[in-house]
């Protein structure tokens, strides 16, 4: 069919405004999507595959199905690493939350020089974990450490903080208190976001300090507590630097954390298959635990917008 050049065309241009916007949108999000696929999805998929193989970084991976998982479940040290990590997490997660919240409540008072204290308590958060672990290894040193030196000056024989299998893990737990300042800004921002009218109303109703804490502060802080709880669970299950630098997982595997054993499998024994299988198990465990915490959160987390809704 022929058409005259002078005839107005009724065909719509292909590049409509809608399409232009769609292309622009795709171009804008492309870097993020490509990055996500390249650096997240692909490694995840590769690691899932490696977890089903025997691979020692030498040669090519050999498919073994679920054998790595079976071997892990039959491995005594795997369960020891699980035990150590759970013990650590069960103690440090509440300890971190209670100690750092207590600290934040003190730091939230209008006291002279409080800004300096806030800075001091936050300092460990900006220090290298390796440097910190080395510092603590010296503090805990059985013979020449500061702690035992102080105890010795009082006429007491200090324990072998890192060499005694019965207390080595607890020494690391004790050390982890050092990092409580890390959560300080989060707590402080939560505390400073609580409307003062609530405290004034509670005071007018005759509530004392404890009642204000339990009936105003904690309910209003509960979303922050939820956030810190989830983050702390993740951090606690990834315990690595301290045992790696201070004890190497010893003595007698008393401080062999899950991630340290994962690292040993990957880089000391070159069992990449078992190491990635461990990584996947940890991921699924953390995911399940976080999901459980979120599932239970409506029972104790106060979200103002949901109440309004």
């Amino acid at each position: 069919m022929q058409t005259s050049l002078n005839e107005p065309t009724t065909r719509k241009p292909w590049l409509t405004l809608r399409r232009r916007e769609a292309i622009a949108c795709a171009l804008f999000i492309a870097p993020a999507v490509i990055g996500f696929v390249l650096f997240w999805v692909t490694p995840l998929a590769v690691s899932a595959y490696i977890s089903l193989t025997d691979y020692a970084l030498a040669g090519t991976p050999r498919f073994v199905g679920l054998e790595n998982y079976q071997r892990l479940f039959a491995d005594r040290l795997f369960w020891q690493a699980v035990r150590v990590t759970l013990t650590y997490a069960l103690i440090v997660v509440p300890m971190w939350i209670i100690s750092s919240l207590t600290l934040a409540l003190i730091m939230n008072q209008k006291l002279r020089g409080v800004a300096a204290f806030r800075t001091v308590y936050y300092l460990p958060a900006v220090l290298s974990g390796v440097a910190t672990a080395m510092l603590w290894a010296w503090l805990f040193n059985y013979r020449s450490g500061l702690l035992n030196g102080l105890l010795s000056s009082l006429g007491l024989q200090g324990p072998n903080w890192l060499g005694d299998k019965n207390i080595a893990l607890f020494s690391i737990i004790l050390m982890s208190l050092w990092t409580m300042g890390w959560y300080l800004p989060i707590w402080l921002s939560g505390l400073q976001g609580i409307p003062t009218e609530l405290y004034e109303a509670a005071e007018m109703d005759g509530a004392n300090a404890w009642q204000r804490l339990f009936n105003v502060t904690l309910p209003m802080l509960s979303p922050v507590i939820l956030y810190n709880l989830v983050i702390n669970i993740i951090f606690a299950t990834q315990l690595f630097t301290e045992p790696m630098m201070m004890t190497g997982g010893g003595p007698q595997f008393a401080t062999l954390s899950y991630v340290l054993y994962l690292y040993d499998n990957a880089f000391s024994y070159l069992k990449m298959g078992q190491a990635t299988a461990m990584a996947w198990l940890l991921f699924l465990f953390t995911l399940a635990l976080s999901a459980l915490v979120f599932k239970l959160s409506p029972l104790w987390v106060y979200v103002e917008s949901e109440r309004r809704g």
């Binding site: 059985y142 072998n160 060499g163």
Partner: peptide, 9 residues
């Protein structure tokens, strides 16, 4: 013992 041998720098 292992404990007694530990802690030497």
């Amino acid at each position: 013992t292992p404990d007694e041998a530990s802690g030497y720098s």
